[in-house]
Amino acid sequence: MLPEAVGQNPQVVALAEEIPGAIVDATVAVDGLVLGVSPKHIESVCRYLKEKEGFARLSAVTGVDWWPREPRFEVIYFLHSLARNARLRLSVRVAEGESLDSVCSVWRGANWYEREVFDLFGIEFRNHPNLERILMPSDWEGYPLRKDYPIHGHKYSYQEE
């Protein structure tokens, strides 16, 4: 059963038929449709959207920490189709410690964006060619964009002195 917000959107209906169980949620944001995708289907959904629906570009990948809500993290993929001049957002909810399939095999450009999400949120991506910290130093402890990470960092906490 598809979420109500999808309505009669033929592309989404076709996607749901092609990969059953992939779409778990859909909302309409001020700038368009947001599809909630189940974590285990993200790679196949992305491949389908790139090859069948013409989303040739991955604009960016990022994360949101919804702590203390569960599941804690949301990973968001911003897709862009030049041919149709359309944009689409995919959202995947991930619990702490859970890992996701990398979409680097679909778009090579996902490489740095997934590294950034790993670096700042600590979400791991399976089959990523080079999952290392990218913005923070390689020996950094903790994940700065998590909500329980203090704004001034752990190392410079004055309260503990």
Partner: peptide, 13 residues
């Protein structure tokens, strides 16, 4: 990269 990372996204929050 990362030498100029200043955590601007964190500061926004």
């Amino acid at each position: 990269i990362g030498y100029l990372h200043t955590g601007i996204e964190k500061q926004f929050e």
